[in-house]
């Protein structure tokens, strides 16, 4: 099965490739573009990227398995990424994560990303998001939220439709 990449996306990817003297350099940017479009990186997406760049699929797979932001399975429509690292932990990051999990019926002690059965929400801990002065911080998809109280977290949940 091959990947159906819309022409506009492929044109965007071709532009990205043109930014580098060596095609392989565009790997991460292409994977971002494909994951943004498809929601995750399938085997087909990996093979498509490899063919596009003249690489073996393993050269792309090893990136997908290494870099934490890439995923090989779908995640929720709304992905909550809560910072786990020290400054946020001192500022209530774990309570925030626990509160979100409890509201969504997820297990706060489980390792890794968790998605609600309806596929709407994912919650995961991530490492330092670099806004330690406004702890605790979280990201909802690409939006950044600082100094998030449990109440605000609930408000964020209810805004996700």
């Amino acid at each position: 099965m091959s990947l159906a990449v819309p022409p506009a996306l492929e044109a965007e990817i071709d532009t990205l490739i043109s930014h580098y003297p060596q095609r392989r350099s565009a790997s991460l940017m292409i994977l971002h573009a494909l994951q943004d479009h498809f929601g995750w990186l399938s085997q087909e997406a990996i093979e498509w990227t490899a063919a596009k760049l003249g690489l073996q699929p393993i050269n792309v797979l090893e990136l997908v398995t290494f870099y934490p932001m890439f995923r090989q399975a779908p995640a929720g429509k709304f992905q909550f990424k809560v910072c786990r690292t020290l400054s946020c932990a001192l500022g209530g990051g774990h309570a925030l994560h626990g509160h979100l999990c409890q509201k969504l019926g997820l297990d706060p002690h489980k390792h890794g990303i968790q998605t609600t059965p309806d596929g709407k929400f994912s919650v995961e801990f991530v490492e330092c998001l670099a806004s330690c002065g406004r702890a605790p911080v979280l990201m909802v998809n690409e939006a950044f939220h600082e100094a998030v109280t449990p109440d605000q977290a609930e408000a964020l949940l209810s805004q996700c439709r």
């Binding site: 350099s25 940017m29 870099y67 934490p68 890439f70 991530v126 490492e127 330092c128």
Partner: peptide, 10 residues
């Protein structure tokens, strides 16, 4: 100058 995005690795 081009922007290159990482993917979450310290």
């Amino acid at each position: 100058i081009h922007v290159h995005r990482g993917a979450g690795a310290y």
